Simulated assay, not measured.
Amino acid sequence: MNKVEIFDPAMCCSTGVCGPSVDPELTRVAAAVYSLEKKGFNIKRYQLTSNPDKFAENDEITRVFKEKGPDALPVVLVNDKCVKVGSYPTNEEFAAWFEVNEEELNEKPKVRLSINLNQL
């Protein structure tokens, strides 16, 4: 089974739904990663702001940083080898790496909110 690691640039969240506008690319990637994780695949996502240790510990990421600087992010490793620099994987790439159909990558996390209007 393949191991995929995505090293994100510094940002406030990985979903793309925070800030003044929604980033559809981040939303797509978040949905794909969520779907793959839910199926038990070995996929991890690290943010520079919240996981700097993962960046510092990884020799391949250190090499990319030395060669291209932090503007090279996102960086994608498959089985510890750099396969993509400067852009996120397409759903086609995710599907190939994990041998799934692209349609399986569109599941979005469901959050249930409970609001008691009597307490407002």
Score class of each variant (00 low, 15 high):
Phe7Cys: 13
Glu25Trp: 05
Cys18Pro: 11
Ile61Tyr: 10
Met11Gly: 11
Arg112Cys: 06
Val64Arg: 03
Lys84Pro: 00
Phe98Asn: 07
Lys44Asn: 09
Lys54Met: 11
Ser14Met: 11
Asn101Trp: 02
Asn2Lys: 15
Ala96Thr: 08
Thr15Lys: 08
Leu36Ser: 01
Val4Phe: 07
Val4Met: 10
Ile6Gln: 04
Lys3Arg: 14
Lys54Leu: 09
Asn116Cys: 12
Ala10Trp: 12
Pro74Asn: 13
Gly16Thr: 12
Phe55Gly: 00
Val111Tyr: 12
Lys38Thr: 01
Glu104Arg: 06
Ile115Phe: 15
Glu60Met: 02
Ile61Ala: 14
Val76Pro: 00
Tyr34Ala: 06
Glu57Ile: 03
Ala30Phe: 14
Val29Leu: 11
Glu102Trp: 08
Met1Tyr: 12
Thr27Ala: 10
Ser14Ile: 13
Asn106Thr: 13
Asn79Ser: 04
Ala95Met: 05
Arg45Ser: 08
Ile43Leu: 00
Met11Cys: 09
Phe98Lys: 00
Ile6Met: 05
Asn58Trp: 06
Thr62Val: 07
Leu73Asp: 05
Phe55Thr: 11
Ser35Gln: 04
Thr27Glu: 10
Phe41Lys: 12
Ser21Asp: 15
Cys18Leu: 13
Phe7Thr: 12
Cys12Leu: 13
Lys81Gly: 00
Asn106Asp: 10
Val33Glu: 11
Met1Arg: 13
Val85Gln: 05
Thr15Tyr: 14
Lys110Pro: 03
Val85Gly: 02
Val85Phe: 02
Ile43Lys: 01
Val76Lys: 08
Cys82Gly: 02
Asn101Arg: 04
Asn51Ser: 05
Tyr46Pro: 01
Ser14Val: 13
Cys12Met: 14
Ala96Ile: 09
Glu104Gly: 03
Met1Val: 10
Val85Pro: 02
